[in-house]
Structure formats: structure tokens, C-alpha cells
Design a protein around this nucleic acid. Sequence first.
DNA 1: GCAAATTTTGCATTCGATTGCAAAATTCTC
DNA 2: GAGAATTTTGCAATCGAATGCAAAATTTGC
Lengths: 340, 340
Amino acid sequence: MTGDRSMCRVTAGDVARAAGVSESAVSRTFTPGASASARTRERVLKAAEQLGYRPNFIARSLRARRTNLVGVLITDFENPWPQMALRHLVSALQARGFHALLFDVEDADSLAGIVPLVLQYQVDGLIVGAADVSAAIVETCSATGTPIVAFGRHGRRRLGISSVASDDAAAGAGVADLLFERGYRRFAYVAGEGGSLTWNSRGRGFVRRAAALGLDPVQRHLSGETSYEAGGRAAARLLGRLPRPDAVFCQNDVLALGFLDGARDDFGLNVPADLAVVGFDDIPAAGHRPYRLTTVRQPVDAMMDATAELLARRLEEAAGQGEERLLPTRLVERATVRPG
Amino acid sequence: MTGDRSMCRVTAGDVARAAGVSESAVSRTFTPGASASARTRERVLKAAEQLGYRPNFIARSLRARRTNLVGVLITDFENPWPQMALRHLVSALQARGFHALLFDVEDADSLAGIVPLVLQYQVDGLIVGAADVSAAIVETCSATGTPIVAFGRHGRRRLGISSVASDDAAAGAGVADLLFERGYRRFAYVAGEGGSLTWNSRGRGFVRRAAALGLDPVQRHLSGETSYEAGGRAAARLLGRLPRPDAVFCQNDVLALGFLDGARDDFGLNVPADLAVVGFDDIPAAGHRPYRLTTVRQPVDAMMDATAELLARRLEEAAGQGEERLLPTRLVERATVRPG
DNA sequence: GCAAATTTTGCATTCGATTGCAAAATTCTC
DNA sequence: GAGAATTTTGCAATCGAATGCAAAATTTGC
């Protein structure tokens, strides 16, 4: 009998009958701020309790034109950082009364294809992580008036998109400063893929500051993907030819870990004496004893909270430009850069 | 104007007017299997295209009493394995036309509190990961006829709950066999928390096989949580007193990694010569060069696919007992156990 | 070309809760 | 205690799509 879905559903009408009031009274009892006398409220609550009634969100959403559902679209799902981000995001949304409708997006292209589907669920908003929001998507969403908040990278504010990101440019510059101060002089930057605004700002801040410090141009390597293995390949490439860099900044920790292991195992380099390696994100493995990776910590928790907040704000004051929030990072010094 | 949600919503009525047909015709065009002539269908499709119409899932769900929404409840959200699992689960659900409504559950106790909220969204089913499903939850769900599928651990089939898990008992026994065959004799088992069925079967299979092999009783250590740091603490405890175990099986990779680093750094042990360490899950870091951890791989992909499948099945053939699916694991031999 | 069988169509109702409006009940004032 | 002001209440309509039913249109058979 467990599975008979049709029979056991308790509606407001049932409660109304049991409590001897109208359906409206039941509805008002469950609508904060609605006018209902204490006596009615009490009777309704008792009847509801007995019958196990809870308002049907689907019906409520239909009438209220508001679902409290937020579509969450994440592309880089297999990487640790987006996963950490997701966890905090879900909490932050829950704390604000929203709920996450989660979609896995294979690649950036399929994002545009999934958006219409998400909109069919009448989500109140969309949160897009670690992916570029194309103009097509913006158009689709603005047709239904659904706000978008991006996290992990900026851009498209003009189109009404809010976004939250860490201050990658400043972080990149900070890494350059640190490495310079500790006596490293030949810098390299390892990126996963091209095209991303964040990666660009991360690397750009680094490259610019290096130039400002009067160093030789930073060697750049594009690994094609952000994985441990790709980090190892990057090491093989960058360290295999002279002049060899003596300090490498990687676009994220996973790459940095791969690079670090490659540098040590395949080239017998001593880190941090011969080579400095700096990552980005501060994933759990970065703190493991074989690594002790010096890295840039993104304030995941604060970022995701800001993301939820910007969405909530967008929902209140409908129109207008998007808001961009830039959060400061923190340099976590461990053991892959010489101490000062 | 972007944010004006009320104005831009296209309904079936709008399309009907534009196409010169009735609302029903529009509905039927978008309902596979409904009867509509080719000519009508074509006109509707054209009008819909022009207006950018897509059926409202909320309205459809209300009428159809089916949302295609699945509540996904995960407790162990910060650990790598549940994260991997989540990713595959979302894909598997998407492939079957379901969508994941994701909830972060602080601890096992708050699970029961969240379930009623999830049910208010009229989810078609619930998927619970890495947590015990209490009787209270089962009761709440059976009142609405919502099926539950658990993954990561078994139990409660009688109550109509389907579940998917890897064959942990067999895996534990297999680890014991491997270690014995490679000449290790003093076994220890490190668990994170007590109480869990899976952990028990993982450890139980190991302990039992060790006994069957005529070995001394397996030392057990309960670390209280499953983290890298807890693994290190377990190493300090277990290796700090004699007789010291020469083979340690950890409940998961994160613990194993912590244990391994503790054994090497704090005790100067040579792994695998002096000590064998075996983990469980095969998370990405287990394959990293400083670790090369011998471990048991759970078939995440297959498990999550089975989870989605069991849910789908539960939805079709409503009633009856739950189904339990046990998937085989694979021993991944790397470098923390002596080669044979 | 006519009747029978089939398909297509639109009307009206339904899903479950919310809400504007006006009537009814309560509270307040003097 | 009468009348004004306020609160509470129920009715009926609404949100957007799906569907049983019967009428209308089409196809089929001869």
C-alpha cells in the first residue's frame, strides 16, 4: 500500500472540513502575515497536525508565480572547487528559503540548451557557476524575467547579470609580489583552458605585476584541461627546456599538485629551493603533508553567501543593472615557496 | 525592464490565440501521444516558436500529480566520494527525465526534519545518500506514497526502501586476502564513525576474513570522523604502541591518506615494506604520485545509475518491497601494499 | 456518394492553494 | 448599548495546463 500516491494526499479542503472552517482560513493560517483569528488558527493547526497536512508548494507556486526554486548550473563539476562551492551554495540558498534545482552541464555549449528546460520549472532565478554566460542565455532568461547570477567569473553586468568572484587580478599580483620578494625571477603561468575571464584575470594580474617588477616576460602554458595529469604534463613541458622557470603559478590547485609532483619526480627538483609552485583555491589536498602547497584561498563560503544574496536582491528590486561583487582572497603560505 | 516577471510569460492560451486553435490543441501538441492532426500540430509549433512558448512545468505538475522532481539528500557532503556520487546521480537522473532538488543535510538528525519540507515540493521520490533512513522518515514518506532509494548503505528493505550499495563485505574480505597473501599478519581497521551499516560491513568482512585466515584479532580504531586529520591521529594512536600492526585497512581514502602520511612522517615507516595501507573509494588523490594508494574502487557510475533506475522502477510499479542492489567493487593495486 | 468508423477538436472541469471583495463578526468609543 | 472602526471570514475567481466527454470533421468501406 505504500506506493499508492493518489489516496493519501491531504489538501487544504480536508483540513478545512475537519476544522469546520473555510479553505481560505486554512490558507491564511499557513500564510505568514495573513489575517486569521487566534481561535481559527489554533483549530486549523490542530486539524492539520492530525491529518498531517502541509501546503502543496506546487499549487502555491502556480498561484503565487513564485517557486522559491533556483536553477543551479555547474559545468566544472568534477573539480574540487566547484564541489565545495556547490555545497556552500546549497546551504546559503536554503538559509534564504530557496532550494537548488541542480543540473550538470557537460560543457559550455550545452549550457544554452539546458537553460530553457530549467526555465520550464519556473525557477525564480538561475545561478551559473564557472561558465561563460552567453548572450543567447541572457536573452532566453530576460524573456521570462529570470535573473541570473554568475559566480567564479565576472562580465555581462550590462546585460543585467550579477556576479560574484574573488579578486583574481589582485591575487595574481600578490603571488607575483611574493615570488619576487622571495628571490624568484623567472616566472611561468599554467592555465587550464583559454577564454575564461577569471583565468585571464588571475594570470593577467600575475603577468602584469611581473612586468611591473621588471622581470622577463612570464612564460605561459595552456594545458587544455585542469587536471592533475595536465599539471604533470605542463611540468614536463615547461621544465624540459631552458631557461627553466624558477617559479610557477598555476590556475588552480589540482594543476599545481600535478605540476609539483612532476617537478619533483621527473626532474628531481627541490621545491621550494630550486622551484616555487603556487596554486589557487586551497582545496583540502593542498594542505596534505606531501604537498603543503602555498596557494591562494578563495573565500568560498562568503562567495556563495554573496551569490545567494545577490539573487535574493535581484528578486526584490526587479529591474536594473547587475551588481558585481569582488571578494578578497587570502594568500596561504605553506612550503612550496621559500620562507621570507 | 529585464526584471518584470509578470508581463512576459507566454501561456498556452496565447499560443492558441495566435495559432487560431483551442488551448487543448496546444496542450495536446506538447503531450506526446495525444491526438492532434499534423496541420494543427504544425501551426501550434510555429506559433509557439514565434512566441517562445514552453509548457509551464509547475502547472503541468499540479494537474498531472507528477513533478519529475527528485529530492536528493546528502549528509556527507564535504567528502570526495559523496561529491562524485552526486555528480553521477544528477546525470543519471537527468538521463531519465528527472531533476534533482538538492538539500544539504547537516547531520543525520536534521534529515528527519528536512524530509517534510522536501515533500512539500511534491517530489516524485527521495534519494538519500550516506545516511541512515530512520523509521520516522519512512513513515512520513509513506503517508504521501513517496518512494525512497538509499545509496551507500543497505537496510530497511522491509519498509519498502530500495537501496544501492557496493559489496563492502566482499571487498573487506578481499582486502584481508590480499594483505595475507602478501605476507602481512597483524591487521588493523580504521573506521570513521560507528553505527553505519556500510562501515560495519566493510570492516566486518575484513575482520571476519582475517579471523578465518587464523590471524590475531584485528585491532580497531574509531576516529570519530572521516577526515585527513583524523587519519593522522589514527596513525599516531595505532602505531604508537606495540605490537604495531603491519597492515591497515581504512574505511575510506581520505582517512587512508592521512594515515599514510602520519605513518611515514611521524614514524618513519616504509610503506609498503614495513606497513601496508589500503583505502576505500578510489578518490582522485589516491592516484597522486606521493600516494599511489592501493584501494577499493566503488563503481560510482554504475551505482548512481542503478539508484536512478530503482527509483524509476519504484515509480512505475507502485507498491511492494524495496529492492536491494549490491554492486561489485574492484581492488585497485598501487603501491601501498607489497607486490605479489 | 452515403453510412459507418475513426480521428480531431473544443468546452468545461480539474489539480491545490491564494487572494480581492464584500459580508459578517468582533472590538472600540462615547 | 448604539454606532463607528476594525478584524475576520467565506465566496468566487485565478494561476497554467491536462483531460473526459461529446460534437465536429475526417477517413474508410462499399
